[in-house]
Design a protein around this nucleic acid. Structure first.
Lengths: 197, 197, 197, 197
DNA sequence: CATGAATGAGTATTCATTCAT
DNA sequence: TATGAATGAATACTCATTCAT
């Protein structure tokens, strides 16, 4: 079965990564064994190790994908004309739906790993900076258009909104009662000053 | 009737819990071994297992403590006359200082466990509800005093602020650039409408 | 079962080492598994790993013992008044009996490892130097007493005799026909010149 | 009727064998993987397995070659008129040069395998008998010519010299200080009695 | 014949937990 | 109660070998 296309390799990696994400979401990074992943992917151990050097490599690859996916979401959100719509889209993405997405669950796990693992930690930092920067731009744009007052420090507001994003992810992960839509509305009201007298 | 005083038992448990917190913060729940904890506590394995039935019990006890500590902080913050000061005190507590507190690091770990472990998950839910409820009260009070407009849904704002609290903890844990003071200021400005035209 | 004497630990290590030597002699370093050793020692895996950090550590400990044992044999042989008797004793030790000693078999294995493993390699070098030095002294003494002619380079003869010692070990290990007694006699005749016209 | 010429097959086998010898010398029989050999030979796994049924077959083939090579050396040495020159040539071959030959390193490895593997063990026995027989002839011839005294048991001397040969190989393999030339000289002096008064 | 992806049995090692002293 | 040696299930990873293309 030699000489396979790059496409083939990519598909196989996809298979492994998806299986791993499912296992990690269900059992956590540690409790999910490589055997679990193999079973889920319907692949032998040797095959999995042919595509990834170690379990940690799989986790790292998943984190990289997560960052890329976030970047794509951010880019898409930034296309929206109304900043508050962009923020709403972002919050929807991270905490959307009632069911917590498999990937989101995996993300929380990686926060715990980020402290001990430089590679994951760095990726995590990059990811959060991505959100902060995008939100900063969003706020500044709104300020230019007069939708948000100039008196606010855009960087501070961006950081606050990033905190809301990550906090919503966290709270959703443990099943806290969280009305994402209401939170978005409150944030919009606060930012645009429509709530103020 | 126990052979040793309750005081003695309590002190020993304290010793184990502190040692465990240190180990967990340094290495993570999984990488930290019971041996590590014993070494750190200068206690034998038998002794540690005399006070806690399992490693999981230690983690759970730590979580319970964390919830209690949070409750105390919330209570104290609620004593402050100015709601925004209370919020500032809260945010200081969770994300305060430049260095991430040992316990905070342990908390993030427990988020990852909460998904798979009912016991930890329930405690986590209780904890977050605690914050939400307190913040709700805070907002309502401010609204009564006219510091925050009635137009806002206090529950939604409270949830948003709880997200900020947890998000700040998360971001701090992986070393993101986060100016807690500026975030607090921004939140205050937004809430009190002092930033609006 | 705590607080055991040093004697106890020493005995346990002995147990493991003996079991390991038996397994290694029977199957070779690689084919003999840690499980084999545990079974042979009637000890659990955890117990074995409590005394030795790794399989390699066991192999190294065995090599150290082998060197020490050789040193003891050399010392004992050097007590003999007649140099040729000393050499005979040495050769008897390394290639003695019809059956190859368990430890001898293990030694040959370690030669193969010595090339790739610094630790074992160094020990092996020390060991062979031991033989060479002792044999050199022996030859020199005989030369002083006139039993061996001064014309011979004692160092060269010592090296040659060390080669005989190791070569005999090797040949015995693969079951070559080797009459150790005859070889010793020939060596004696050559050295003392009793064979010459 | 084979599709490819015998020549072709022979060349390929040569390629594999040379690659294997290099890998075995560098890492040892066990640590060297079939993948290593394939990489070294710039051949695919399928190709290698097309020429040899297993890793063990490669090792055995290498041993057979080694025996053949030894036989050739012995034959060549036996052409020399002076027995001591023949022995010198032999010792030069096995322990010659300052650098240990790749094949010699592989040989030592095979000694360790010989104990557990009948096939290798038998080949090894044949090989050593080869040396012993040749050396015996050599000694007898010298005795006929009066260069070595009749008083010596030629078989015993031959065995001793074979031990020197193998011992030198061993000691060289672990980097012991060994002056092969001096050893040869000493052996010659002893055998010819030129060292005796 | 060649290729190299897939297989899966095999192995060293770790670590939570128990229990004899 | 305290001790820490012993237990052994669990797990990540390797590598000789096979076989579809």
């Amino acid at each position: 079965m030699p000489r396979v296309s790059e496409e083939y390799v990519k598909d196989k990696k996809r298979l492994v990564l998806d299986a791993a994400a499912a296992c990690f979401a269900a059992k956590g990074f540690h409790a999910a064994t490589v055997d679990d992943i193999c079973r889920q992917a319907r692949l032998s151990k040797g095959a999995v190790y042919g595509y990834f050097g170690s379990k940690e490599d799989i986790i790292a690859a998943l984190k990289v994908e997560s960052v890329q996916r976030d970047a794509a979401v951010v880019r898409a959100a930034m296309q929206r004309r109304e900043p508050d719509q962009a923020f709403e889209a972002m919050l929807d993405w991270v905490a959307g739906g009632t069911e917590m997405d498999e990937r989101r669950l995996t993300d929380i796990q990686s926060w715990a790993v980020a402290m001990q693992n430089q590679r994951i930690g760095d990726a995590q930092k990059v990811e959060s900076q991505l959100w902060v920067d995008a939100l900063d731009l969003l706020v500044q744009e709104s300020q230019k258009r007069g939708a948000i007052t100039d008196r606010l420090d855009s960087a501070a507001v961006a950081q606050m909104l990033a905190c809301v994003v990550y906090g919503a992810m966290a709270m959703k992960s443990w099943g806290a009662d969280l009305n994402t839509r209401a939170v978005t509305a409150a944030a919009r009201a606060l930012l645009t000053g429509t709530a103020s007298a």
